[in-house]
Amino acid sequence: MKSLEENYLSNLKFPPDMIASLRSIGEYKGKEELYTKQSPDVLEKLLESAIIQSAESSSRIEGITAPPERIEVIVKAKAEPRNRPEQEIAGYRDVLNYIHQSYAEIPLTENTILQFHSMLFRFTTTKPSFWKINNNKIIDRNPDGTEVTRFVPVSAKDTPGYMNKLINLYNDYQGKGSFDPIVLVPLFVFDFLCIHPFSDGNGRISRLLTLLFLYLCGYKVGKYISLERIIEESKSTYYDVLLLSSKGWHEGKHNVFPWLNYFYGVLIAAYKEFESRIGVFKGKGHKTEQVKSVIQRSIKPFSIVDIEEACPNVTRDTIRKVLRELRDEGVIKPTSMGRGAKWVKK
């Protein structure tokens, strides 16, 4: 809770570029209601796509993978999980759905966080516990098998006290309106990751808490755009800024601005994508630009179905037309042919 201690928080001096980011986020938030009144059928498809992407990306960040077709049927609850990765993906799905459906009634308490953790592992043989019972550390594994310690979190013995104080500080600030919520949310998430209160699942719980907090503070973009996917697409930067900002955390002498800058960047990227997906581009050719924008963001092979999910208001004929044009321009190329063909950027 070092970032939320009053002597640390009160002395934060935001640089001009970060103030500009906060202003931009505030402007996006102000336009949310207008956007969400448009095309409810499109928004429903975006929500469905975001849940699938979030469950997939947040799990994959932690090395938990499953075939895309299995992830989709599991997230849609059309199949039972049949192995450990699928069980954990199903658990993440359930917490996501709980947040989307009931966020307004979910208080920030120790029990809520423990409930999220229990739900995450509900389909596995892992027994729910309170906080971690053994000390843990965050490590990097080198290609030769050696390990390097990146960060040593709070000890198991001190974790209950740290979590209690972190939650109380956040709720106290929120209740008094002492600080802007968009400042408090990333600081809470960062301190949570530094405490690392569980033996497993800390990263995923932190991303679920991010979604919940943003919902409660009126930033609902995570409902329609997967924040987890954006984090996965910038995973190396995500880990780099966590390392940078965690140095000196135990002493309260850390520099949290690399983390804040990254967090706000993710949020701005989500809002920009949200605007493009609901078709706020005006004038001739805006749907073509939507398709091109999705392709430009792609970091792995994609299919027509992938683009349809990202652009639910664009017809398949339009998507095919754009793919042909980009192929002829040498921007993309097919990696397979026929039904289910995949494409990659050159």
Rank of each mutant, 00 (worst) to 15 (best):
A77S: 14
F151I: 00
K157N: 06
F188R: 06
I319Y: 09
I89G: 10
E6L: 12
I139S: 11
T318Q: 03
R82S: 13
T335D: 10
P312N: 05
H286V: 09
D41V: 10
V154L: 01
E110G: 04
T237P: 05
S246V: 03
G330P: 03
E44T: 10
F192W: 02
L108Y: 00
G30M: 12
I307A: 06
D200A: 00
S206W: 04
T109G: 05
A269K: 15
E289S: 14
F198E: 02
L184T: 05
T126C: 06
D172S: 14
E56Q: 13
P68W: 06
E110A: 12
I19M: 14
K165W: 11
Q115K: 14
K346P: 08
L211P: 01
R122T: 08
L96I: 15
Y264T: 05
I139A: 14
V95W: 00
K2V: 09
L34K: 10
N111K: 15
D144F: 10
K165D: 15
I332Y: 04
C194Q: 14
E309F: 11
R60H: 09
L114E: 05
I74T: 08
K29M: 15
D94T: 00
A270F: 05
R316I: 07
E72C: 09
G283P: 12
K176N: 14
E232A: 05
V73N: 08
K223G: 13
Q87H: 03
K345T: 11
Y103V: 01
G203F: 02
S54W: 10
L187Q: 10
V322P: 02
Q174V: 11
S206T: 06
P186M: 08
N168S: 15
L108K: 00
L211N: 08
W131D: 09
E147A: 00
I332P: 12
R122A: 14
I19A: 12
N135R: 03
P197T: 00
V152H: 00
K76Y: 04
S276N: 12
R297V: 07
K287Q: 14
S293W: 13
E309Y: 12
E273G: 13
P258K: 01
R204V: 02
W249S: 10
G330S: 09
K346C: 10
E105L: 11
V280Y: 08
Q290C: 09
Y162T: 03
N7D: 13
V95S: 01
P301C: 10
F123A: 07
I307E: 04
I195N: 02
M18V: 13
T125M: 10
H286S: 15
V294I: 15
P153S: 01
E228F: 02
I52G: 06
P197I: 00
Q115D: 14
P143I: 04
E44H: 07
R122P: 07
V314A: 00
A66C: 00
Y98W: 11
I89W: 09
F302R: 11
G340K: 13
N11V: 05
K223M: 15
P334M: 02
D306V: 04
S129C: 08
E309P: 07
L43M: 12
T210W: 04
K132W: 06
F190T: 12
G26L: 11
L326W: 06
Y173K: 09
L227Y: 12
V221I: 15
I230G: 12
E273L: 13
